[in-house]
């Protein structure tokens, strides 16, 4: 590679950072830039719940010292959202109207909280835990609040519920079997969840749904289809994530929910790669594109994208890491395997 190559990575999560460090290991001379819309340095997103409830402090949230970037010659641009990219001129257009030119691009923008279509009319009432900036807005409110309504349910939700319960908060948890992201809730898991929540002051609601949420005093009134009425201080939605790829739409990249990539993390446009939960990876076994979540998967994909960007031909393990440990129960993290099994 010529010394003046400029590798631009959009996204400052595990995929983006591991892509950057892999690139630096293999190419000492290239210019490497990480661009992130978040103003906070690389942090452990799975630890956000513990951080906002003061279980850990800020240093435990951070993955790297900022100096490690300058030490390794990686330029970190924080708080600089990308408006769009132009593959023809190989340009990334930043929101503050700066144009960055790349020779090769890796998109690793991750994902953001999903709002269920049926819940969009209540979105002003809902809180999410999917980014640092988001949770910092209501960190103090969480401490003050006494009654919580949590619905949906994904892996982060359970940590949150357990922590709230430890703080003697009143928690009502409504599990959506069909929205239990990224996989569907089966009876085995439901039983495991009930078991894991036993002994905690959690009011578990199953096979119910939200009929309405309305503001009430300083909090909210939640009514369910089974006629339950709950007055709570805060309502949290945990209904999975959707890839953060809006900026990439319309530039010629093939995008479904996420950016479609081959097993080598290559997009349909030369010199552009995507990895992490913003990408949907082609699975030849089922001939479709699937998303895998979780820190280890993102790390593995970031490395593969970087290696292939440099000319290698590595293939990502199609199912990624298959299992998460959910409250003592091993659960699959890849929904395509359910498809596979059904087939």
């Amino acid at each position: 590679m010529p010394a003046n190559d400029h590798y631009v990575i959009i996204g400052n999560g595990p995929a983006g950072n591991h892509a950057a460090s892999t690139l630096r290991d293999k190419d000492k001379d290239a210019k490497i830039t990480i661009v992130s819309d978040e103003a906070i340095p690389f942090y452990y997103k799975p630890r956000l719940t513990r951080y906002i409830l003061d279980e850990i402090d800020a240093k435990d949230l951070m993955v790297k010292q900022l100096s490690s970037y300058s030490d390794s010659g990686i330029r970190l641009r924080l708080g600089q959202p990308v408006d769009r990219i132009d593959p023809d001129s190989k340009t990334v257009f930043l929101h503050h109207k700066e144009e960055i030119h790349y020779t090769k691009l890796i998109i690793a923008t991750g994902s953001r909280a999903r709002v269920l279509p049926t819940m969009r009319s209540y979105s002003d009432c809902l809180k999410f835990i999917s980014s640092y900036d988001q949770v910092m807005e209501y960190k103090d409110d969480i401490k003050q609040a006494k009654r919580f309504f949590i619905f949906g349910g994904d892996l982060v939700a359970f940590t949150f519920v357990r922590l709230l319960s430890k703080m003697n908060k009143q928690v009502s948890l409504l599990i959506y079997p069909n929205a239990f992201w990224p996989f569907n809730l089966n009876e085995e898991m439901e039983a495991a969840i009930a078991q894991s929540l036993k002994g905690l002051s959690v009011d578990l609601l199953v096979k119910d749904d939200i009929k309405a949420i309305a503001e009430s005093g300083n909090g909210y009134r939640v009514r369910t289809t089974k006629g339950k009425e709950l007055n709570v201080d805060m309502v949290f939605s945990f209904n999975g994530l959707i890839p953060s790829v809006e900026f990439a739409r319309g530039c010629g990249l093939d995008i479904d929910h996420g950016i479609l990539v081959s097993e080598t993390m290559q997009t349909n446009i030369p010199d552009i790669y995507a990895c992490g939960s913003c990408a949907q990876i082609y699975n030849p076994d089922i001939n479709t594109y699937t998303t895998s979540i979780g820190w280890p998967n993102a790390v593995a994909q970031g490395e593969v994208a970087a290696m292939n960007l440099l000319g290698d031909h590595k293939v990502i393990e199609s199912a990624g890491r298959k299992y998460f440990d959910l409250e003592g129960v091993k659960v699959k993290t890849t929904w395509w395997e359910d498809i596979e099994e059904r087939a």
Binding site: L78, G79, Q80, F93, L94, H96, K97, E98
Partner: peptide, 22 residues
Amino acid sequence: YDSQPAKPHEEDKSVLGWADPS
């Protein structure tokens, strides 16, 4: 900084682009 300047910045010509990550 001016988030919407009258003219686009060329690469490395914006102050935000050079701001320390801290």
